[in-house]
Structures are given as C-alpha cells and as structure tokens.
Write a protein that binds this DNA or RNA. Structure first.
Lengths: 283, 283
DNA sequence: CGAGCGATTGATCATAATCAAGCGATGTGG
DNA sequence: CCACATCGCTTGATTATGATCAATCGCTCG
C-alpha cells in the first residue's frame, strides 16, 4: 500500500525485477492470441530461460553491422530500434516492450542495419537460431503464433511510416502514446489511463520525426488540452477518447485476433467534417 | 531496334506483356540470393502459373478490411500499398515491383489494414494459403529463400520510416528514386541510369509524405541540379553518385547476400562536414 | 468539343526547425 | 561537502521548409 511512497527500491516499471522471472509476457501474449497447451508453454518458458542478458539503460543490444545469428525476446524493460543518420539525427523505427520479439527473422540477415539499444534497464532472452528452429519444429503451433505476432509487428511498422509521413506533431505524439498504452495494457503493464514511461522527450522526438524542442512544446499542448499528464517516468492519460481521435488511432490493429469490425473509413471522406470539428479544440 | 519508336503496341515497362509469361522475376531473384535447383524452380514456376490476375491501372488488388487468405506475387507492373487517412491524405507505405511478394504472412491476418492497388497495368500470381504451405513444406529451401526476401522487405519498410521521418523533401525523393533504381536493376528492368517510371507526382508525394505541389517543385530542383531527367513515363538518372549521396542511400541494404562491407557511420559524426559540404550545391 | 487528369506556377500561410539561453535535479571528484 | 559538469526539460526569438489556395496549361479520351 505504501508502494507509491518508497518506490526507490522496487520501482522499475512499477514492479520489481527479479532474477529469472517466472512470468513471461511473451507466453501470455501467445496464450491469448493462439492458445497454447501445457507442453508448448513449458517448451517456450524453457527456451526463454536458457540464456538471458541484462543491459544498463542506453546500452546497445545489437550494433549496426553485426550479424546476430540469434533472436532476442524482451523480458523486462523497453528497447528501441533506430537509425543513426549521417547528419547526426536519429530516427527510432520501433519500440520493443516486454513480450516483444525483436524481429523473428533477424537471424537470417547478415548485417544489422538498425541497431537496438536499451531505453532503461533491459532484460532479454537470447535464442540462438538453431535453438529457435528446434523449438518451432518441435512445436509448430508456437511457430505459427510467433508468425502471427510478427504480422502485428509489420503492421505497427507501417503505422509508424504513416505516422511520421502524414500527421502533424500533435497527432504523431498522440498516436505514439495511444499505441504504447494499448500495447502495455495488453501485456498487463499499464491500464487504460496510466502507464510507466521511461522515454525521454528526445526519444519521443526521435520516434516521431520531430525535434526535441518541438516534442516538448507538443507535450505541453497535449497537457494544456487536458489529454495527458506526464510526471517524470509515469504517464497519465486524462482523455483517452480525444487522444485516440487526435492521433487517428485505431486500437484494433494491435488485436490480431479480433473479429467483426469493419473499416471506419472507406474512401476517406465520410468522417471528415465531424472529426475535424471535434479536433478544433486542440489542433 | 525500332522498339523505341513504335512502343505503343508493346510498351509496358519497355517489354511486352504476354499471356502467362515464362519469365518470373521472383524466380530470378531467389535464384540469385539463395540458388535453386531445377525441381525448386519448376515447383515455383508451377505455383506462380496456376492462378493469375490482371488489373487495370489504379484498380485495387486487396481492399481495406479484407482477409485475403492468399499471397500475391507481382509478375508484371507496379503496385502500391497505402493508408487512406480520414483527412483525405494518403500515405504509400510500400511499392511492389515485379518479383515482389506482397507480404508473405499477409494470409495470417484477418483484416487488411493497408490496401494494395495497381499503379499501372498489373499482373499478379495468386497463391492460396494452403498451396503456399504445400509448396514450402515440399521445398523447404524455397521457404527459406522467401523468408530471406521478406527480411529485405522489412528492412525497406524501416528505411521508409526513416525517409519520411528524418529527411527533407529533396532527400526523400532522391532516396526513393535510388531505391527504385536499385531494385529495378536487380530484376533486370532498369539500368544504372535509366528506368521506366509509371508513378505520378502524386504517387511520389504520397510515398514521401509531402504534397503533390511540393513534389513537383522538388523534382524541378533535382532536374535543375542535373541529377535526374524525368520525361513522361521514363526516368533518367544523370548523376547517380550525387543522387545517392543526397538521398543518403546505401544500396547494400537491398543486397541481402553481400558480404564484407562495414557500416559507413558509427556514431553519426565523422562524415558530417564533408558530406554536407558536397551537398551545398543542391541542398 | 468538353471533361478530366497530371503537371506547373505564383502568392501566402503555418508548422516545425534552429539558435540560444536558462533551470532544476543528479551525480562526481577534489 | 561543495564546486562543477551533465542531463533532461523549458522558454523565447527567428528562420525555413513545406502546406495551402488558386489558377493555368497541355494532353488524352469519350
């Protein structure tokens, strides 16, 4: 109950990092999307437990030019995949959260073009190529579930391209915050209105393709509009509905298994007037 | 020899479209990257031949919300994958050329979030999920080769995020033109200094996250700087070296198999001065 | 011939970058 | 323990890149 007060000792995303945690977000995730039997769960847990690495904040997990030959699964903490440009700017192309597989097929590549680094303290499981192959041939449904999961990853990557390509700063940041909220909630590390937030404003800027100064001002606008509150390493979402609308965010794209729902916009005209009207307040 | 003159009857990327062509860019590509034996080539050719579709320019191949259940392989023509935003703007997230597989794992998804449409006349092979599965279990090396190819696709997707996130209009367009040049050359449909160009300025704009008006002015700048010449449906690259430098383009990322080469930039500082100096002329 | 489309041009506006400085918290070495 | 450096955040002033609005032109096609 006093957890909020003496958080110094235990805080790390609101829960303690223990050695070799028995709880793996990836297993939960696949459980929910594909359903696993006991043997599959055990096999997966075993594979994740064999070899783990812990990295300090900002340490690099995979460097540019490397040929990893192994797949990494985030156990705890956040990581970013980015490109360092020759003019000194940086573009983050992906943020990995607990349960995320950092590019299932990365081990097929002979040269890493997008290095990965820890955002804060990061623990990953290391699955050598051969071991992964053994796991998936033994348990084809695990492979299937992992591929399904990778499809979501591809979708997210495309959403990012759209985000930086066609939205203004407020919408970009809103979209990012909504995406993180949804992904964190899905793995039980956040709620609809709050989640731990280890990103600096520079990280937000690099993920959204804007400058840190502008990220700062954008966040202030979102705060002033009553959409979010951001104290230190913790984010409150004050008005999820408006934030999602501003970011043009559709949480369904993160739920691969969901059925039914039809596309909201067919040719891009229908919702225009109402949507824009509602946004005037902030935008 | 008079092919250039009476191109009206045969032109479609400089070569005629024939019914059921015997030449498949995908087979060539996999041949080069992975090496296939006769049985594999035949199996692949057979699979590509079973079912094909031909679409008119701007016709949609896969619509938003659909669950395709099949994989498409471009045989001839160009296609774009895009997102239509609620404010009427569009972001192209991928351009598919002959030999490209339009998302190997798309058939695992239950809802298409990024429709695909033909840019000009498009012929695709249609591989139902089950048939693809049969092909790959029968010929594991084909699966491996396809996965390798998909890794390049993922890399391209990330490059696009970088492109629209961190480059100005001239650099974005330059990068796009270089990427297309390299990909087309790899499949024998372009040379180092020339390729057929079915994109409209609006397509360029939507791929680069700028407006058509600005795309027009950007192209004029590139022309004026002597980097390119663009007449109708055909592009000349006048100064490949400077165009690549302007677009910060590294063609190695499209050659999965290439060995050796080390990263040009380690921490983003080294090349700054010289590179920028050389660019002053255009930028 | 008129409609529609793609390319082009000009004028003006707005979003975001850049440059510069300062502030508060944290951490470190003398 | 203090002096100082660093880092992340914040603010202001100015600039620039690209968006927007509007109009024209040439071409193709029904």
């Amino acid at each position: 109950m006093t957890g909020q007060l003496n958080q110094a000792d235990t805080r790390e995303f609101g829960r303690p990092i223990v050695d070799r945690p028995e709880h793996y977000a990836l297993i939960d995730k696949l459980e929910r999307s594909a359903g696993l039997d006991r043997a599959e769960r055990d096999a997966l847990r075993g594979a994740l437990r064999v070899s783990q690495r812990t990295l300090s904040p900002r340490a690099t997990l995979i460097d540019a030019g490397e040929a990893p030959g192994e797949v990494h699964v985030v156990i705890d903490g956040w990581a970013s995949r980015y490109r360092q440009l020759s003019d000194g700017t940086r573009q983050i192309v992906a943020i990995y959260l607990p349960g995320d597989v950092c590019d299932l097929d990365a081990c097929l590549s002979d040269r890493c073009r997008f290095p990965i680094e820890a955002i804060d303290t990061l623990r990953v499981a290391v699955l050598p190529r051969k071991q992964l192959a053994a796991l998936t041939t033994e348990h084809p449904r695990i492979e299937c579930a992992l591929r399904q999961d990778a499809v979501v990853g591809t979708s997210i990557q495309r959403e990012w391209t759209v985000n930086v390509g066609r939205r203004n700063a407020k919408r970009r940041v809103s979209h990012l915050l909504c995406e993180l909220a949804t992904r964190l909630t899905a793995i039980g590390l956040g709620s609809d209105d709050h989640y731990p937030f280890p990103l600096t404003q520079r990280d937000i800027a690099d993920a959204c393709g804007i400058t840190p100064v502008h990220a700062n001002r954008t966040l202030q606008d979102l705060r002033a509009a009553g959409l979010i509150a951001l104290f230190g390493r913790s984010l409150d979402i004050r008005d999820r509905v408006r934030l999602e609308r501003l970011g043009d965010f559709d949480r369904r794209y993160l739920e691969l298994g969901s059925r039914g729902a039809k596309p909201v916009v067919a040719n891009g005209k229908e919702h225009r007037t109402r949507e824009l009207a509602e946004l005037e307040q902030v935008d």
